[in-house]
Design a protein around this nucleic acid. Structure first.
Ligand code: MN
Ligand code: MN
Ligand code: ZN
Ligand code: ZN
Lengths: 155, 155
DNA sequence: TTCGCAAATGAGAATAACTATCATTCGCAA
DNA sequence: TTGCGAATGATAGTTATTCTCATTTGCGAA
């Protein structure tokens, strides 16, 4: 996982956070910056509200849980984050890369792999059309077990 | 949807409910029979715990909500029912037909269409294998809108 | 048939993951 | 700087589901 040290300089492509918030029509506040920072650090791609709260708390960055929930929802509505509903019972968020993808979730360690398959995507459209529907969105979750035992992703 | 009228006679394949429960290693109790009956009637294929509870209550068949939850979980573990997690926030159950299928959920009316696509299924296996995983299970939910307005399934 | 008793149920308390309320604080435009 | 509407924190409230425990029930043994 990449660290924050020796981060590349700002460019049109890598804006810093305040710009992101401005563009999303959200005013620049400390809690919003901290939450966004966490996702942009990229250490963990898929985070639940509780995890965001814990990670910030552990880093001495206190943001109330209510605010974490509010901010995550706002970011998702603004298109900064996308939300997923894994079987775990709580939703997880990730930075919106602009590229749709689906997920493989390891049953041993919870590790998440991403994939995109054009064939599957096309077939879905076809199936929906055949049934008289147009797709708003879809979710494909593959729950799987690592073939290399013990699971190398398990820490 | 198929009706209960002119149901075929019992055969090895179409057992009546007490047999189902016996086979599943569950003792034959009134609440279990009532819940199973509801699903075997086939009027509604995909039911949440709350819906099962309401349908039974409305029919004068009182079964406590706690028992409905317990029984649904037991049936699912016994392989009589399968459980799905639509985006709604509550899980729904359906009779285990033995034939895997995925779902299209209408965003207008909540109507659920079922489909099976061999191409998608095969691709999933391939993708999992490529990533070093073997699939335990998967869920593909297509959230869609009816192209014929207004939605003909909306009651 | 009737017993005995482990298993199942019902009523309601408890939990987990959110969501709403509201008094206080903060960001920012003037 | 100041003023004020938006954002936050603390906490109460919801919703879906699970747990606890006193009471009832299914069913094999007698
Ligand atoms: Mn992802
Ligand atoms: Mn189905
Ligand atoms: Zn996809
Ligand atoms: Zn499938």
């Amino acid at each position: 996982m990449r660290t924050l040290i020796n981060r590349p300089r700002h460019t049109d492509h890598t804006m810093h956070k305040p710009e992101h918030l401005k563009n999303a029509g959200l005013k620049t506040t400390l809690p919003r910056l901290k939450v966004l920072q966490l996702f942009e650090d990229g250490t963990e791609r898929h985070l639940s509200a509780e995890e965001v709260y814990k990670l910030l708390s552990d880093a001495g960055e206190l943001v109330s849980l209510a605010t974490v929930y509010r901010v995550l929802t706002q970011f998702q509505q603004a298109g900064l984050l996308v939300q997923h509903h894994f079987d775990s019972g709580r939703s997880v968020f990730e930075l919106n890369s602009g590229k749709h993808h689906d997920h493989i979730v390891c049953q041993q360690c919870g590790h998440v792999e991403e994939f995109y398959d054009a064939t599957i995507e096309k077939r879905q459209e076809k199936i929906a059309a055949e049934h008289g529907f147009v797709i708003d969105e879809h979710a494909l979750y593959i729950y799987a077990s690592c073939t290399k035992q013990p699971c190398p992703n398990k820490k």
